[in-house]
Design a protein around this nucleic acid. Structure first.
Lengths: 339, 339
DNA sequence: TCTGCTACTGTTACCGCTAACAGCCACCTT
DNA sequence: AAGGTGGCTGTTAGCGGTAACAGTAGCAGA
């Protein structure tokens, strides 16, 4: 319970260290950054003084003078989604070796908020930006395009990137899942997903899904949306609703694993034969699924790898814009009949 | 797929806007910050020019000149924990109205990493710092103490804060849970938790728990630790292991809800009578629990409120150090016998 | 002995913005 | 008419570092 400032003096600057060690500020700066030649004894003296004083460099001044900022902005829609923390892990993993540091901004799926987060971040002149999705306001795109730094849009590649992009085709992912379901013999298929008008990737998956259904002469026999609340619980509730409305449905396609898991638990509790009577599938490949009584069919979104590749692009800052497509694998689990 | 810099010129500065609008840089600065008196026509002209050019202010220069940084450092052990995203929500909620902005740093429960994250953050001279836990290296404590900004340690209050603190007593939480369990008539109690040597809060809960057991003349009849992997799955596995070793155990106390949920699913699948034959309890009150077939007993850690209060302290920057204790409520759910 | 080079340290001029203060003008006031 | 007074705009001097360049000393080679 000490006071925050035990020492009444001003915050320390290079000058303080310089005076304490008897060399110029420039030499102190060199020692602290490990740049240029400094004799061993001087270096020792300086480090000693800096340590004794508890000096912490001022990066604001440093960045202004050197025109270099070791920050990478990362803009994502949500932290509670389970998927973005994993992307962050991939990013940190790569950035850790480069002296670059990620700074996270959260948009809550709101375009306005995204715009202000981007603006705020750019005003700190980061070395690069990583942003989820390809859909941004015109102003956001313009800001990013003229920032003069590498921009990487992640998660999705179905669209026109500002600069670089790393992700999967959600449209294709939806299509693939539909094809697998149809091949397994299911015909009365329902969709259950988020209401969120701004979850463009879920929307694209559904588009691809319906496209493939149409090609097989099928249409969704029901759809159910939710927003907010406990995803697991919503999964149960929505599943109950669909099964009541359409007792003859034979497949439930969920827009994410969490609600899929809720649905699975519900079906099992009802004693429904899964995957015989009803099949289930989600999307994402969250590790949570490993602990369920039965393994939910899903598709891995390559989150870790997306984070890694995006960070690598920022670190390398290649001249030419690149688009890296990753290919998610369909994991049939135990909730789709073996055809 | 445009190039990142459509315009070959240097990045824009106040001077560019000033020239474009025919007024001094100072006036532009005033308009852009909404500070001081500027005539309506001038303001219009400046805003127009800034918008047309796509000017984004340089906060680095601004911060250096004004000695004010609208950043709040938030240091947490992990993002995938489910608990910290909620704390972040509380923080953002309050900070949103103040012009302050949170910047997250993740330590992965490593003291060394915590130290460097703190150092890095302080070097940006934030307006305040929010840090999880009371246990930090001597160097970390020293840096924070002499930073001259409000420091709020969150989650825990069993210890000696550097400055402010907001949290619950985990020792007391453990004790309370033990008392409830004993009161319900359980006697053969086992603990299942994380191995993590640096999860001090889980450790304190266990201490409090054992303390209360001891007072009733009981000791844990078994304990099982894990690290890494899917918590839900680990919960199943550990539960199986404990039940095999000690078929007569009658209560399983989990260090978090996720493994508790795994244990619950396992017990239900085995047809074990919960809470008759075996009782279960976790810790945290994660919303996931709402979707389980049966509601797991738990204790709410007040995460949202902790985030809010911490942010409020930073925003108000009170002179006197304050310690705010919150009191978690025990939610018996359906997995403890009604005594 | 003088030159040239290397190893080390210091000096100067900013980086882009803002605090503080200094005008200037129109309009009152007395 | 002299002296406020407020509204608006500009000037100056940094903020705390770093790039670029300028010494200085010591030593090897010619």
């Amino acid at each position: 319970m000490t006071k925050p400032t035990p020492d009444p003096r001003h915050t320390l600057t290079l000058r303080d260290v310089s005076e304490a060690s008897g060399v110029s500020e420039m030499t102190v700066s060199r020692v602290l950054r490990n740049r240029g030649d400094v004799s061993a004894p001087t270096r020792e003296k300086v480090l000693e003084a800096a340590r004794a004083l508890g000096y912490v460099p001022n990066k604001i001044a440093g960045a202004l003078a050197s025109q270099r900022v070791n920050l990478v902005g990362v803009v994502i829609p949500s932290l509670s989604n389970m998927v973005f923390p994993e992307v962050m892990t991939g990013i940190s993993e790569i950035l850790d070796g480069t002296g670059l540091q990620p700074v996270v901004g959260v948009t809550n799926y709101l375009p306005d908020r995204e715009e202000s987060v981007i603006y705020e971040m750019l005003s700190w002149r980061p070395s690069g930006m990583i942003i989820a999705g390809l859909e941004h306001s015109a102003a956001s795109r313009a800001m990013l395009a003229r920032a003069g730094i590498p921009i990487v849009e992640i998660m999705d590649i179905d669209g026109d990137p500002i600069n670089h992009a790393v992700g999967i085709s959600h449209r294709r992912a939806g299509r693939q899942m539909a094809e697998a379901i149809i091949a397994a013999g299911y015909r009365k298929i329902a969709f259950l997903g988020t209401q969120m008008p701004n979850d463009f990737r879920a929307k694209k998956r559904l588009e691809g899904f319906e496209e493939a259904l149409a090609k097989a002469g099928l249409t969704l026999i029901d759809r159910e949306y939710y927003s907010g609340g406990s995803a697991l619980l919503k999964g149960r509730e929505m599943t109950a609703a669909v099964l009541t409305r359409n007792p003859d449905v034979d497949f439930l396609y969920y827009s994410n694993d969490m609600i899929g898991a809720g649905g699975l638990l519900y079906c099992l509790a009802q004693g429904i034969d899964v995957p015989g009577r009803i099949g289930l599938a989600g999307f994402n490949g969250v590790e949570l699924l490993d602990g369920l009584p039965r393994k939910l069919a899903t598709m891995d979104a390559c989150r870790l790898e997306i984070g890694r590749k995006a960070a690598r692009i920022i670190a390398d800052a290649p001249e030419a814009a690149q688009v890296e497509e990753l290919f998610p694998t369909l994991e049939p689990g135990d909730t789709i009949r073996k055809s």
